[in-house]
Amino acid sequence: MKTKAMAAIAAEETVLGTETGIAPGKTKRRRAHRVSALASYIQATPLAVILGLFLLLPILTIGMVSFWDYDSVRIYPDFVTFNYTETLGSWVTWKTYLNTLKFTAIVWFLTMVIGFWVAYFLAFHIRSATMQMILFLVCTVPFLTSNIIRMISWVPFLGRNGLINSSLIELGIVPKPLEFLLFSEFAVVLAMVHLYTLFMVTPIFNTLMRIDRSLIEAARDAGASGFQVLTNVIIPLAKPGIAIGSIFVVTLVMGDFITARFMSGGQSASVGLMMANQISLLQYPAAAANAVILLIVVLLIVAAILRVVDIRKEL
């Protein structure tokens, strides 16, 4: 329905465009317009084909397979609903979802606070554009290196005989190594914040850079304190960036399984991990049903974020 309506609007706009195009009464222009419209289709085709083949059809396949039957060897075309009833009827699923949502909330909050202040510092306290660019790159570069290596790199810090434990013991703060540092939920949150904060920094930095500085001057002239400028001017204007960053972080954490598996040493549960386990047991239809539920939950959260903040201006 909605796509149809959109297509209708788009079609109407094309018609209007053509009509304004022929205002001087030249058919040549009309043809040029038609040729350029054709060019747009040709130029957009590769993207449409790739996304159709590797995004749209695979997701439809997941939807289809979630109704299939399976045994320990293979999967069978069928129309059964027990993949859903089993998943939704088990309290393990609900507990896992709650646990995943808890991780999402904690990581979202931490990355937002850290990301906002880092972006704020870069946007408002660094005066020279070159320095701004350099510091921004310093923040971006780790994002372009391997996630797994970045996770591994916490081992010498957090391990039983790691840097933190050995310094704490040496300083006499704790008598024996703290066990909760590595392979715990704490480690999972720490690694996720480490991996994903950049997804907050970039969009927030982008919106902060676009704020008209005269607005801040005006607020100051009108007698606003620094705190009031922040809460009444800067944060409301930064909302679209915060929303985009939030969408990134929420979807990354909701679908994560590798961080949860590696950093918790298998002790913590997450939806992604549950799916990965079902996949490794070749229970594809069960994993597919889980995937459909996960997708719905993620899309609901994204829709909720978009309801609160209008990000269209940012695109």
């Binding site: 590797f54 995004l55 695979p58 396949t61 979807t251 992604g272 594809y284 597919a288």
Partner: peptide, 12 residues
């Protein structure tokens, strides 16, 4: 394509 969790794309 960015919003759909990676594991879903992989499975799909």
């Amino acid at each position: 394509s960015l919003v759909v969790p990676s594991i879903l794309i992989s499975l799909g």
